[in-house]
Simulated assay, not measured.
Amino acid sequence: MGLTTNTVADTPTTPPHVVIHPGGGCTSAEDGRVVSDEWSLGVRTWGDDPGRGCTLLVGTYEGRGEASQPLLSALPGVVLLSQAEAATPVLAVLTAEMAVEAPGQRALLDRLLDVLLIATLRTWFAGRREEAPGWFRAQHDPVVGRALSLLHHDVAHPWTVEELAERVGVSRAALGRGFTALLGSPPMAYLTSWRLALAADLLVSSDATVASVARRVGYSTPFSFSTAFKRVHGTSPQQYRRGQASA
């Protein structure tokens, strides 16, 4: 994750085009030269002219995990909110904190960026609720939303449809119908998919053993986990980890 501010022209003159890379490095689109140092204007700030009045706040997340795919696949290439729609004080706080250099500042900025992103996407989806993906609409359903929360809160629990239905106070049939209508799959099929997505991210982001990952996502043995993982991802957990590391 990284954050920078970019001060560019607010006049009809077109500013030079730049490419922002993972980690916040910036190069000229015309000749590929690195402009991060050349355009440096201070702490986490760069641009073509310090006197210009338009500032872009640039935040990047590096990597695309399996667990984030339902969100990413539901978004267009660009999400645009007007100032009125994006009325959150977080943006002003983040902008002010960008110029501060102090112990723990990177962690603080990362958390503020997380909050701003969540607030922005929540607002964007809420304004388009009928077009929003099922997992977003499910949060507002008193039965399915509760069931989804239980599954996410304790993914390793040996859930059954019977127990889940009892916990949310409806019949198995009613839970199955509502869950499938909103999420596109029955509760246990959704749980399996979510477990394996979390497992894939754990394999890449940690050095935990396959057996440990299996237990953390609710599989009693590495063998049952490997079988399920290979069925979904087309490769064993070990091969998946090696392939992602080399990529």
Rank of each mutant, 00 (worst) to 15 (best):
P158A: 08
L57V: 05
S226P: 09
T11C: 11
V100S: 04
T14M: 14
L94D: 00
G23S: 10
R137A: 02
Y61L: 15
T14Y: 09
S171Y: 13
L150F: 05
A87F: 10
L150K: 07
V8T: 02
L191S: 08
D154C: 06
T45V: 05
K230V: 02
S28E: 03
F225N: 00
Y61N: 13
F229M: 08
P237N: 01
Q83G: 09
G145Y: 03
F125A: 04
V204H: 07
T4N: 09
A99R: 15
H140C: 10
A138S: 05
L196H: 00
L182W: 02
F136A: 03
P16W: 04
R167S: 07
Y190S: 13
P89F: 05
L57A: 03
R111M: 11
C26S: 04
E101K: 14
P187C: 14
G65N: 03
R242G: 01
V78M: 08
P142G: 04
A84S: 09
L72E: 03
E85C: 11
L94C: 04
A99H: 12
A102K: 12
A245S: 10
E163I: 12
D48H: 12
R177Y: 11
A181T: 13
P76L: 14
T5K: 11
W159G: 05
P12F: 14
G32L: 10
